[in-house]
Simulated assay, not measured.
Amino acid sequence: MHRKELSYYVSGFFTQYLGNEAGLSINTIKSYRDAFILFFKYLEEAGICKISKLKMDTLNADNASGFLDWLEQSRGSSISSRNQRLAALKAFCCYVARKSPEESALCQGVLKIRVKKAPQRPVEYLSVDAVEYLLKMPDRHSTQGIRDLAMIALMYESGCRVQELIDLRVGDITFRSPNTVTLTGKGNKARVIPISANAADIIKAYLTSASICNMAHSVFVNIYDKPLSRSGVSYVLDKYGHMARKARSELYPSKLHPHILRHSKAMHLLENGVNLIYIRDFLGHSSVTTTEIYARCNPELKRKYIEQAGSLITESVEEYSESEKEALIDWLRKNI
């Protein structure tokens, strides 16, 4: 039986499988594409194989591991980026193994490579006072200022990801009580988030000022009427962060990144007693385990967890079944 080349599987993976069968988002597909571009670059730089001579055997565990180390050591990639590239290779190997079982042994070598654990950094977020002061920075009397104010207000109120903000269309916002915004997140999953009348009024004022009324039009655009880029959003936020820091340096870190408003909203909801399950749905997390990072990073919330845990423990521990004891221990281990 004639063995197919690596290029055959790569072509099918990107042109048919990822978008059609797996239903992955454009951003995930781009991330996978970048992973393969870097992998091929590594193979050439390391003298392993030229792109024009790629064979299926080239995708083996040794080359994949060498590639991951190269990302960290030669390109200075973070552990998170390294793991993202590995996820792309593993997704490809799963695809190949299903399509051609005879390649399973080769693919299993890559699939057995473990993700690298990264030290967990504390979640960076702003206090309520810091968010309120930041919202005072844009000049709401200019079109650009009202745009920036609307953008910052919406990022905080909705807890949206940067890409969700960039992809937002006018038709995704409902200006009637209750005012809502429909966000499309990872895996093309949509969620409807309520926003305050204040935020809705600011967004309406911006759209009117910018003469944007087409339902299919991007909400946040630059001076060329093109959707803001990720770097554009970062620039705007850091600009106002710099302005706010001049007057209230104690409230702000050295640089504001777009995700900080999402983190801030999550922390403020949690501090006000909102259930983690609701916050998970609000943020669009696939698992509450992801949301739990917010509970673990705040000493006061951790204390509340300990108190809650104490209320679960009675004098007669014998009344708990073995499975209940295990569940309680697992809960404590995750949250304290």
Rank of each mutant, 00 (worst) to 15 (best):
T291P: 08
G187C: 11
G232K: 03
Y305R: 06
Y224A: 02
E300W: 04
D167E: 08
S127Q: 00
S211D: 12
Y240N: 11
P178L: 03
I146P: 13
E132L: 12
R303S: 08
G241P: 01
L149G: 04
M1S: 14
A197K: 15
L68G: 06
N272W: 10
L312C: 02
E5Q: 13
F67C: 00
T28I: 00
A97W: 02
S100A: 14
A64S: 12
K189D: 00
F92D: 08
Y8G: 01
K189Y: 10
H257I: 04
C297H: 10
P194M: 12
Y32N: 03
D330K: 11
F36C: 12
G171K: 11
G47M: 04
Y252I: 01
D281K: 13
Y224D: 15
V219E: 06
Q144N: 15
E307M: 15
R75N: 15
L38Q: 15
Y42T: 07
V128N: 09
P194A: 02
V96I: 09
S229A: 02
K239M: 06
R176N: 03
K30S: 10
S78A: 05
M243I: 15
H257T: 15
L183C: 07
L183E: 06
F14D: 03
K4H: 07
A200M: 03
A247L: 06
I51H: 14
V10R: 01
N275L: 05
I203G: 07
K304A: 04
I212P: 14
L86G: 10
A118I: 09
E271R: 14
V317I: 14
S209Q: 13
R296D: 02
R147T: 04
A88R: 13
S231Y: 09
A247Y: 02
I293K: 12
E44K: 08
A105H: 04
I48K: 12
S52P: 13
Y133L: 13
G284V: 05
H285P: 11
A197M: 05
S142H: 04
T314I: 01
D69G: 11
F220K: 05
E250L: 05
P194Q: 05
R245W: 01
P119F: 00
I212Q: 13
D225S: 11
H263A: 13
G241C: 05
I279V: 14
S211K: 15
K302N: 10
S100N: 08
G159A: 05
S316A: 03
T174W: 11
K112N: 12
P119L: 01
V170M: 00
S254Y: 00
M56Y: 01
I195L: 03
